[in-house]
Design a binder for these strands. Structure first.
Lengths: 417, 417
DNA sequence: CTGTTAGCGCCTTCAA
DNA sequence: TTGAAGGCGCTAACAG
């Protein structure tokens, strides 16, 4: 980029410091001076140099949202909610300096009028797709740390490999230590020992809330790296919003049992992930409560997608023709199960009942409508977003359990005979 | 962040320049020196300061992917493909310097061994959710320009408001002028006039391809901002991969006509967007070809979601009870249509045929399976990703039309009587 | 192969 | 209310 702050300053006949103040709206500037500066900015189509700004101020407005699979609506819905909260937050910056706002949103203004200007406090919410790969997860975490992200939200189940978990927790600790807010959404909290593993001094950065409600002319950003170390270098446990996967799965299985099912096939998600394990544990607990045996051959692992559900259903039927119900680890896989059953000429739920998990938007439109467990993805994502922005107080103990709700629909009924 | 390059240099007893060279792997360094540096990096848990690095090098490794609705699988699938190509690209950096790689992927190594290290050339693909809001689209574009993004991929239909279109095109021109590669995916090309509106000199940055295949020790990045202006400051028209929405819609409608339908309801997407218009035009063309009248009351506009489809279907039936078929602007809305018909006690396709668009993964599992138009979202996204990385040559004229394929399934049949 | 030395563009005290 | 000036941490010539 050619045009820089100095160019704007020259054209507005002020110093670079003044231009900076106008742009950041964090310091009083005379009204007509401000106007001159803004005109110069528009005329020159000046756009702030993010890196330079971030370097000098030691902060950035990036907020990272890590998801396991962006093509899966489960994550799309969460990410969307987080993003909306982060960059469209209601009541953000109530005392914003008028002159630095984007304007009235009138897109028919002369092009260039609002160029390069973004409402102060506006964060760049950014979704990072790990594809479920541990390496990529770490890579993104590192990249976000490089960028000095303001906050990071990790969504969905975690990989349970000890080495990886340790590495991730260490990365999160470093992030937190660097002043980045870390929030877990739909992911179990970091075990205390892990969180306490390595912790440097935690700089006490002022929260966004504090900034939002401080005096009209906010004082300059606190130099996080220079602030004195906090007294207790205790465990850095990120705020966690965990889904009640275990409870939801248990209630789902109990629902089937109550209908009279005894031979229930279970298609679990990919092995070695917390979500997979918790749902499976819930399922088994549901069986155990009623003293129903659970032979290993009735469980198959697969990915969280349609094809996996399809294949797994065939495999289950091959192994055990006496099945009267199949539970899939999520709705997408459940659709695959339905397809496999139909291809075998089996009626749902007449011959075999089917159930899913998540209650994604399309589940109610399957035929028959899918019995499943509803997770309030949108609400949880929004809450995670507010937590990431420091706009909501963390739950007691920094952990909240998000309830799951059983949705009984047409795909389950009493077994045939 | 406390630990900086100088700290690492001190610990490794080398100069900062050497550390930088090791980290960037773009210059020869003695093997044992490199080892010392890497050990120091690991010991100190050093993580590069992204902003500082970006500032000094005048580039960043951010790649932005703009989507209208991240919760919609249509965009999720495209974004996923782009991302995979951008950050997992096959054969990227074939001559990479071994020592600077993350390692063998062994997550059980001592935590800290690979910290802060990311494979050279690794890009941070980042998905930005505009929510279909023009303002947010511009904001993201500005924010990405601030960050000096390496590339930007815009996906999905564009808003047709003239003022907004002009503003977006101007923003894209500025991005391009700043050396950011711009790719349109599933979005019509920028009209020549618009693209030519404002164009500064286009710095001739070396493409990634050139970098990838240059000598073993790649020479330093070209100083884009300082390179001489290109001879022809012509129009900056970004590479565009457009979907054949018009053709697909036309074939879909002709399919219904060929089955004998004459009274076809059409649920268009939100007004004022290119995708909506193109699909509607295709539909009308399909009717016109066969001389079938198209009274205005048979078209209803709505969002691209289930609820909109549901409501619109009820409205259409209210207006015209003679309908024998309903086409929805996308599959999600089509599901809503099916639900509305079922709620009215109508059979699909016995009483009313239904068709969608996009062929999202769940469409084949609807009951009956949805007749629709398949768009190769995954393939298009991957191609867009490669284009964004400069790993694939742009199509002739910088525009490629991605074909749409009619998928005839169970939800359409000849009308009843 | 390695060290020295200027900046990169902006923010932010300190003065005025 | 405004200006002057010193970094922020890193990269990239240019020597050696």
């Amino acid at each position: 980029m050619a045009v820089k702050l100095a160019d704007v300053a020259a054209r507005a006949r002020v110093s670079t410091a003044t231009v900076s103040r106008v742009l950041n709206g964090n310091y009083p500037v005379a009204e007509n001076t401000r106007a001159r500066v803004l005109r110069a900015v528009a005329d020159l189509e000046y756009v702030v140099n993010g890196p330079a700004s971030a370097l000098a101020a030691a902060t950035s407005d990036l907020v990272g949202i890590l998801v396991n699979d962006i093509a899966d609506p489960f994550f799309g819905i969460i990410a969307s909610a987080v993003q909306a909260e982060v960059s469209g937050g209601v009541g953000r910056r109530p005392t914003g300096v008028a002159g630095t706002r984007t304007g009235d949103g009138d897109t028919r203004r002369t092009p260039g009028s609002a160029y390069g200007l973004v409402p102060p406090g506006e964060k760049l919410a950014v979704v990072c797709n790990t594809g479920g790969s541990p390496e990529r997860e770490l890579t993104y975490l590192t990249l976000l740390q490089r960028q000095r992200a303001a906050a990071v939200v990790l969504t969905g189940g975690a990989v349970e490999d000890t080495g990886h978990a340790t590495a991730v927790n260490a990365a999160l600790s470093r992030l937190a230590a660097a002043g980045t807010r870390v929030v877990l959404c739909g992911r179990p909290p970091v075990p205390p020992e892990a969180g306490a593993l390595k912790t440097g001094p935690i700089p006490q950065t002022r929260t966004s809330v504090e900034r939002f409600f401080s005096s009209r002319h906010a004082t300059p950003r606190a130099p996080a790296a220079l602030s004195p170390a906090s007294p207790s270098p205790g465990a850095v446990s990120p705020v966690a919003l965990a889904f009640d996967n275990r409870g939801g799965a248990r209630r789902l299985t109990e629902h089937l049992v109550s209908l009279g099912h005894r031979n229930i096939g279970y298609i679990a998600g990919p092995a070695g992930r917390t979500t997979t394990r918790h749902r499976l544990e819930g399922h088994r607990a549901g069986l155990a409560v009623h003293g129903i045996p659970d032979p290993a051959h009735r469980t198959v692992h697969g990915a969280y997608d349609r094809t996996a559900g399809y294949d797994a259903a065939r495999e289950l039927l091959r192994r055990d023709a006496s099945l009267t119900a199949v539970i899939a680890a999520n709705d997408t896989a459940a659709l695959g199960v339905c397809a496999a059953l139909r291809d075998r000429g089996l009626q749902i739920p007449g011959d075999v009942s089917v159930a899913g998990f998540d209650d994604l938007p399309f589940s109610v439109d399957a035929a028959p409508a899918l019995t499943t467990v509803r997770l309030p993805l949108q609400e949880a994502g929004a809450r995670a977003g507010r937590l990431a922005m420091g706009r909501e107080a963390p739950p007691p103990g920094d952990v909240a359990m998000i309830p799951a709700e059983l949705m009984v629909r047409g795909s389950t009924s009493a077994p045939h005979s």
